[in-house]
Design a protein around this nucleic acid. Structure first.
Lengths: 200, 200
DNA sequence: GTCTATAACGAGATAGAC
DNA sequence: GTCTATCTCGTTATAGAC
């Protein structure tokens, strides 16, 4: 599946995923076609079918790679070893990179199209959200303990609100083609979690 | 355009909009067809073309009606004459009704598909968001003045964060087919805006 | 206002050559 | 691993009868 030869990742396969990923993040899974990807790579549709049996399989590979990259990014933040607040800032920055490229989060886009997706893709999308919530829950628990973060409810509830808010902020900001809208929403969200109560 | 006859709203036209609206809110604008709507209403595709020249025109009518209904709902909340906090609760309840029907907000769904939409639909989606933000801004300013709401940044910034958070909460909750996820996120969001600082 | 019939196109997919 | 050629189906849309 990965790079059997010498290097890493078969070249064509990775380039197909790169183009398809951008198309899905900007137009949606139902609004891109094998023909779009083939044309951009100067290939033909059957060449794509050689690498990915069908659109469903391509979609599954797309989400799998996206989740793997996100997981890596979360591990990088963990290793950076900041306090909860800094980790949350790092997390929001991941989304900022997405909107900077005029894209929606891959799984946020697929969430909108959820009811039209092949079941394996649906499952992967839910796992993506679960994984993000788990990670955020840990960061929030850490932040609460340290005193770097304050929130109402349980860490899991706060984690879910953060995930939803960032996905929604991406969705709206991208429509206005205004990354600043995302930045502002992310900043406001963080501010609400770091308010120090008036020290008496 | 409206109900020229005796009653209100031509029957077929309204029924087409009803079915199309549900399909767009659940599957997306790019994942429903005239054939879907026609079959459900036991009509033929040309009958639909009689009422709406093309898919674009149907989409425009869909958003126009949705925006009009939302505007009415906001006016109802205004007339209810509660404080800022209660108005926000009423606002969140509008979204809760949507997720209870396993739907996405129409304009949230269209925001995901934004780059594939006919331009008139794009404009209407942005106007929907603008209108919501304007209304929320007013409610937040009122709440801040009364002391029923607290937030960081300007009322407009807070309004944008609320809109994004609720849209995102819809998006995620609907994927899990779990309205409780939305309710929890909405409650957490409200809680963050009504925290009373430790009274001394 | 709704129908039958059909055009014109693009989508996803396969067979089989090279 | 990529191609040409082709198939089948669904989609949007129109012409013209009733």
């Amino acid at each position: 599946m990965a790079g059997r030869p010498g290097q890493g990742e078969d070249g064509t396969r990775a380039r197909i995923l790169d183009v398809a990923e951008r198309l899905v993040q900007t137009r949606g899974f139902n609004a891109f076609s094998y023909a779009d990807v083939a044309a951009e790579l100067r290939l033909t549709k059957p060449a794509l079918h050689y690498h990915f049996a069908g659109k469903g399989e391509l979609g599954e590979a797309l989400v799998a790679r996206y989740v793997a990259r996100f997981t890596e990014a979360l591990h990088r933040i963990d290793r950076s070893d900041g306090d909860g607040q800094r980790k949350l800032e790092g997390y929001a920055a991941l989304y900022a990179h997405v909107v900077a490229e005029d894209r929606m989060c891959l799984c946020g886009m697929l969430a909108a199209e959820y009811h039209t997706l092949p079941v394996p893709m649906r499952d992967s999308v839910l796992r993506f959200f679960d994984q993000n919530e788990d990670w955020l829950e840990g960061v929030l628990a850490q932040g609460a303990q340290e005193g770097s973060l304050r929130f109402s409810g349980t860490p899991l509830e706060a984690a879910r609100l953060i995930l939803a808010s960032l996905e929604g902020a991406l969705l709206v900001a991208r429509s206005f083609e205004d990354p600043a809208r995302f930045e502002s929403a992310a900043a406001g969200l963080l501010a609400g979690l770091t308010e120090t109560e008036p020290s008496d």
